Computed example of a mutant assay.
Amino acid sequence: MANEARPCPCDIGDRMEYGGLGQEVQIEHFKAYLVKPPEASDKAIIVIQDIFGWELPNTRYMADMLAANGYLAICPDFFLGKEPWNSSRDWSSFTEWREDKKPTNIDKEVNLLLRFLKEQYGVKRIGVVGFCWGGIATHYLAFRNPEVKAGVSFYGIIKLDEDRYDLKSPTLFIFGENDHLIPLDQVSALEANLKEKCTVDYQVKIFPGQDHGFAHRKREDISPTDEPKILEARADMINWLNKYI
């Protein structure tokens, strides 16, 4: 996603060569990638895509990781069949591209998804994990939807003019220190507002030396400096969800 003060798309980073362990399902008017845990569970995680869409192998890898840790993981196509962003496109068209893809315009699909998970899989407790565009959506759902029991928002843009700090569910916010799309002063403002208005547990964590997308769009074997930070962020995600779901 992009800095709201100067909208522009982010770089895709390392695209994984990964096939995924789950299956695609149809839920009313949209599709979703669903992966089941090794043993049946009544706990589910909604995994929310970044601007590169629900089919990005990197995001499906994260969904599979959550399933391996005991959660039913589902990654819906919140773009509803519309074309995701492509790095080869002219960045000047980004604002127009995202006009009909707002991360805060997903309530209808989330409600259908919750019903599907309850009716088809007996899910009783639900969490949300989102990346970039999905990080904004995660923040939004943690603020708006009381059925969400916990959230982990990875480098979601902070719109300081929107008062979404009285969260309904415990939320972990993860950022990279060198994220050129999300200035650290915005992260500090987020933390200050949460401290003033949030009554549930939250954590804002900044990873030194990391940039936008580091936890799911950077290969951990590229740099011995980056690898422990990537793995730590993923472990933090699992630990947060285990604690509250």
Rank of each mutant, 00 (worst) to 15 (best):
S41A: 13
E83L: 07
E99T: 12
W133S: 11
A67K: 01
A63I: 02
D11S: 14
N69K: 12
D201T: 06
E39V: 11
L72H: 09
P208I: 05
L114S: 05
N86S: 08
A192P: 00
W85R: 02
G53D: 03
W91C: 07
E196L: 06
I157P: 06
P9H: 03
D42L: 01
A5Y: 10
F214T: 00
A32D: 08
D201M: 01
E177T: 09
E227V: 12
G134M: 09
L194F: 00
D236G: 09
Y165L: 08
F207A: 03
L181G: 11
P84K: 06
R234Q: 15
E220Y: 14
A67D: 04
E177P: 04
V47P: 03
E39P: 01
S88G: 09
M62R: 05
E177Q: 15
D14F: 15
F154L: 14
N242F: 12
A2Q: 04
L113F: 10
D50N: 08
I230K: 07
P38I: 04
A137F: 06
F214P: 02
A73Y: 02
W54F: 14
P183R: 10
G22K: 05
L117S: 03
V129P: 11
E227P: 01
L113M: 12
S169E: 11
E39G: 00
T225K: 13
W97G: 03
G127E: 01
K229Y: 13
D107R: 12
K118P: 04
L167I: 10
T104L: 05
F214E: 01
A192V: 03
D211H: 07
P146H: 03
S88M: 10
Y140Q: 03
A40L: 00
A32P: 04
L184V: 03
P103H: 12
T59A: 10
E232H: 13
T95M: 06
W85Y: 09
F175M: 05
E227K: 15
P228M: 14
L190R: 08
A40H: 01
D64R: 03
V110T: 15
C8Q: 03
S93W: 01
G151K: 08
E83N: 06
M16E: 06
S41G: 06
A32L: 07
W133F: 15
E162L: 14
K243P: 09
V152R: 11
L167E: 09
V35R: 06
P57H: 07
P183V: 09
I106N: 04
P84E: 12
I12C: 05
Q49L: 06
D107F: 02
S41M: 07
P84W: 12
D90E: 14
Y140C: 02
K43H: 06
A142D: 10
L160F: 00
D166M: 08
Y33A: 07
I126N: 03
P37H: 08
A68M: 13
S41Q: 02
E55R: 11
V110E: 09
D161E: 15
E4M: 12
F154V: 08
D211G: 15
E191P: 02
P7T: 08
V204S: 05
G176Q: 04
G53I: 09
E220N: 05
P57F: 13
